[in-house]
Design a protein around this nucleic acid. Structure first.
Length: 883
RNA sequence: GGACCGUUAGCUCAGUUGGCUAGAGCGCUCGCCUCACACGCGAGAGGUCACUGGUUCGAGUCCAGUACGGUCCACCA
């Protein structure tokens, strides 16, 4: 089965007088679409398919240079694989599911998602959408989740059109008939189905437990979404009181505790020190009374306590950080929660505070934000004299949700989790072993995967208290009191997916029973974005939707992505495939680096240094931008450098001109340009083809190792030497040599151009296609990748002595030596040479004899005398300058 | 605190199992309108290969360590 673009007959040559790069992007994008050049042929068997799990970019605004960079890398590999004979499955997705889109939709339409509202089929976007003033005047409109999602579709559709246009312009050889959006119905169905399968197999579970909570977005978040930010803080030393007759390490009746979060004092449930810490050993098992609130708490030992930190003894609060959670769980402590989901101190005091003074103090804190509460508690501590000394300012890292702007709190809530090895050594080992089933490019990236799994300390929290995401496909029965029974969730039939429990009634119930005693309630949570995007292989390959496609494409061959999301996207995808298919999701992971500023900082929107991709493509042309991108080696961060783009542009122009020249010989008739291996007879031509064979070998090897950058670098270097040396050496012969000699040069040049166009095609798809169209049929992008064997066979097909490839270098060196004389004499290279003697070693002179006519012609000498000597030198007499 | 990556000409980077006087492009200097290309062609200057030890006949290349830069993770009382 061959694509029509591969087998089309060559037309009569049409070589433009002054070829240019302008307009090639639009011309060829249209042609490729019309001809279905990149359309996936789904009749091809699995072993001949190369399937790519394209990263779906986040749809919330615009693409940036980093996308251009890494998507180009993927495309070079896709194009190579296609030419190497594999049918490439190269879909594109959009990740429009999640918080960033939610925010935009809220602001743009002036709406707020209220999950308790039923779906309104007659709802349409407010007329004043996009008008911030009008929206501010009227206020936000509450709408149901399904209506909200409809609006998300409206807005993201616009972005997605722009994204597709940009990627087409960039020349990605994506099959645009294969695309998905993570919020579309198919993705929701796949996502819910996978969750239900996890649930059935016990891989998904819910639990009421302390978890990380972002107060800004009022949602739980996962470990993978955390980041540290340096924040100012202060150590506060607090005096805790030992029982009568007991003394602490300093001989007094008080214990000093250092804390950066004194506002959590009311939540203190214990003190903890290291079991080996002699200072506190005598006190373990005893009690202490908290300052201000007068609550009696135990003094305990735990090896996570660090004798070096603070005073060596810490207060455990429910909950100040994740270590508190560990201590609370392992030491079986009380809960004395005081922080609510808004990040404020609860109005009601926790159990255990009983004294009038304690209750009065708590009342002063109730309802305050963390910041205000800290100010207030310090004031209270001063009043009671229990603040020891003054707070010591420090700067310390604080955990944030990566999309949040207030520090994370820890709040107890009921959440859904998917097991990921964070609490199960066997699963952890199995997932780490999955890493060995994939080839990592570059190989050291696997370490990041392994390290991340090794460092997990909990399962994957997938429920989010948000709206624009795939809903958890669950309902809960209500008892006679109207309380939900979370232990017996109601699940939908897979045939009914996707469902929205906030607008669809639970199976077996009527909508009228929603919220009624004896009725049901829908789960209002959505799943984490990653819970859907971790299923891109299943989504793209048609898992449970299109068995035939799935069988031909899954597991996939390659996952390209950036290295910073190994911990999220890559890992979570491995988890889902492990559970669902008992396999690694891909054979290869190709990791791209980042784009850096000229000052080596990561480019980001917030720094305001982003160059828009459209401007780049306009200014330099797509091939030139791709050239820059393809020079970024796998996994390596690369500086933004428009100088490289200019070089890429020059390369494109050089390809046009060199091709025009090389193909121009004999291109004046109506007959197609032939490439006849038997016509290639001259030593220099045959040697050139041997070198070209080496290049093909090297470029192929590099591509097979996913090292597109090496393939480009070698091809480019070879090409420039080819135009500077070989073309110069043979041009006279091609013009005016004897018929046989001229034909040798011409056919060799055509073969070289045909080969080079194919080698460059993955990088510069537009210019190579343009030149291909001058004289060959079909698309260059569907041609077979060149092989070293065919070139070597052509070079050797004369049945004569094998040619020594060293003749190329000997000839080029001799020519360079003569050129140097002309340059030193400040004369034009066109200056005729009256007489010339070239001296070189005996071995090289022997080779030079084979090609001296070509050297002489290129040097503008009628003949060259060859002399054996120690090293290369030339004695040149130039024609005197004319007056 | 742990891990990974990097440190080669002014700039961006090659240098693949250790092997002749360390390479390319850009930039710079000088020259050249040579019938494909002046968006070009030719020539040239420019480097103690971060540092310190070690292995070796021989190290940019291997080993140990140091410094600096970057990233991830852990801790963060």
């Amino acid at each position: 089965m061959t694509h029509p673009d591969a087998s089309a007959a060559a037309p009569p040559p049409t070589i433009p007088e002054r070829p240019g790069l302008e307009g090639l992007e639009d011309k060829w994008d249209v042609a490729w679409e019309d001809r279905g050049t990149y359309r996936f042929d789904r009749t091809v068997d699995r072993e001949d398919v190369f399937s790519i799990d394209t990263p779906p970019p986040t749809v919330s605004g615009s693409l940036h240079v980093g996308h251009v960079f890494s998507y180009t890398h993927t495309d070079t590999i896709a194009r190579y694989q296609r030419m190497a004979g594999r049918e490439v499955f190269y879909p594109m997705g959009w990740d429009d599911n999640g918080l960033p889109t939610e925010r935009r939709v809220q602001n743009y339409f002036g709406v707020r998602c209220e999950p308790s509202l039923p779906y309104d089929p007659d709802f349409s976007a407010p007329a004043d959408s996009g008008d911030p003033k009008a929206i501010k005047k009227r206020g936000d409109i509450d709408i149901s989740r399904r209506n909200f999602i409809d609006l998300c579709h409206v807005l993201t559709a616009e972005d997605e059109k722009a994204f597709e246009a940009l990627f087409r312009r960039l020349g990605l050889s994506v099959d645009w008939s294969q695309h998905y959006a993570t919020i579309d119905e198919r993705c929701q169905r796949t996502s819910q189905r996978a969750f239900l399968r996890n649930l059935t197999r016990g891989e998904a579970y819910q639990v009421e437990a302390p978890s990380l909570w972002d107060v800004t977005h009022r949602t739980a978040v996962a470990q993978a979404e955390l980041e540290d930010r340096e924040r100012p803080g202060a150590y506060h030393k607090l005096a805790f009181h030992l029982p009568e007759g007991t003394t602490g390490p300093d001989g007094s009746g008080d214990l000093q505790i250092a804390t950066t979060r004194p506002e959590l004092l009311a939540a203190c449930v214990a003190l903890v020190a290291h079991p080996d810490d002699g200072r506190y050993q005598p006190l373990f098992g005893g009690n202490v009374t908290t300052p201000v609130f007068g609550v009696k708490v135990p003094i305990l030992a735990h090896e996570l306590a660090d004798p070096e930190k603070g005073t060596g003894i810490a207060m455990i609060c429910t909950f100040g950080d994740t270590t508190d959670v560990t201590w609370w769980r392992e030491l079986d402590l009380d809960v004395r929660a005081i922080v609510n989901r808004d990040g404020r101190i609860n109005p009601e005091p926790p159990q255990g505070i009983a004294s009038d003074a304690g209750l009065a103090a708590y009342a002063r804190l109730a309802g305050k934000t963390m910041f205000s509460a800290q100010v207030e508690i310090v004031e209270i501590l001063r009043e009671t004299g229990e603040l020891v000394g003054e707070p010591t300012p420090i700067t310390h890292p604080v955990k944030f949700f990566e999309k949040g702007d207030k520090p994370l709190e820890i709040v107890t809530s009921r959440q859904w989790y998917i097991r990921n090895g964070g609490r199960d050594a066997d699963l952890r080992a199995a997932l780490i072993a999955r890493g060995d089933e994939m080839a990592w490019h570059p190989a050291y990236m696997q370490t990041r995967y392994t390290n991340w799994i090794d460092g997990l300390n909990g399962d994957w929290l997938i429920s989010r208290q948000r709206f624009f995401g795939v809903p958890l496909p669950l309902w809960y029965p209500l008892d006679t009191e109207g309380e939900p029974d979370h232990d017996h969730p109601i699940v939908p039939d897979e045939a009914d997916l996707p469902v929205d429990p906030s607008s669809d009634a639970a199976p077996g119930y009527a909508e009228s029973q929603r919220g009624r005693p004896g009725g049901f309630v829908g789960d209002t949570d959505v799943m984490d974005t990653w819970a859907t995007s971790s299923l891109t292989p299943q989504i793209a390959c048609g898992w449970e939707e299109d068995d035939d496609l799935y069988a031909r494409t899954y597991p996939m061959d390659m996952r390209p992505q950036a290295h910073d999301i190994i911990r999220t996207w890559l890992f979570s995808t491995a988890v889902r495939s492990h559970f669902e298919a008992d396999t690694a999701p891909w054979g290869h992971c190709a990791l791209s680096g980042w784009i850096l500023d000229p000052d080596r900082k990561k480019m980001s929107k917030s720094k305001g240094n982003v160059v828009t991709p459209v401007d780049l493509l306009d200014q330099h042309g797509s091939d030139a931008v791709r050239y820059w991108a393809a020079n970024g080696r796998p996994g390596t961060d690369t500086a933004f450098d428009d100088g490289q783009m200019k070089i890429g542009r020059r390369l494109g122009i050089k390809i046009l001109n060199a091709s025009r020249f090389a193909l121009g010989f004999g291109a004046d008739g109506d007959a197609p340009l032939e490439i006849d291996p038997a016509a290639v007879t001259e030593p220099l031509d045959r040697a050139m083809l041997l070198h070209l064979a080496d290049l093909v070998h090297e470029a192929t090897k590099a591509f097979e190792e996913f090292d597109y950058a090496r393939a480009l670098e070698r091809t480019e270097t070879w090409f420039w030497a080819f135009t500077d040396d070989h073309v110069e050496l043979v041009k006279s012969r091609a013009y005016e040599g004897s018929p046989a000699d001229a034909e040798s040069a011409r056919h060799a040049l055509r073969l070289a151009i045909s080969t080079l166009l194919r080698l460059f095609a993955p990088f510069l798809p537009f210019v190579t296609e343009e030149v291909w169209s001058w004289w060959r049929g079909g698309s260059v992008h569907r041609q077979p990748w060149p092989t070293a064997e065919e070139l070597r066979a052509t070079a050797a097909s004369k049945g004569e002595d094998p040619v020594d490839p060293a003749v190329s270098g000997v000839a080029a060196d001799a020519l360079a030596e003569i050129r140097r004389h002309k340059t030193d004499a400040k004369r034009s290279l066109a200056t005729p040479v009256v007489s010339c003697t070239v001296t070189d070693t005996a071995e090289r002179i022997a080779l030079l004899h084979l090609v001296s006519d070509d050297v002489a012609a290129a040097a503008r000498a009628t003949s060259i005398e060859l002399v054996e000597g120690d090293a290369l030198s030339a004695d040149v007499e130039l024609e005197p300058p004319s007056e």
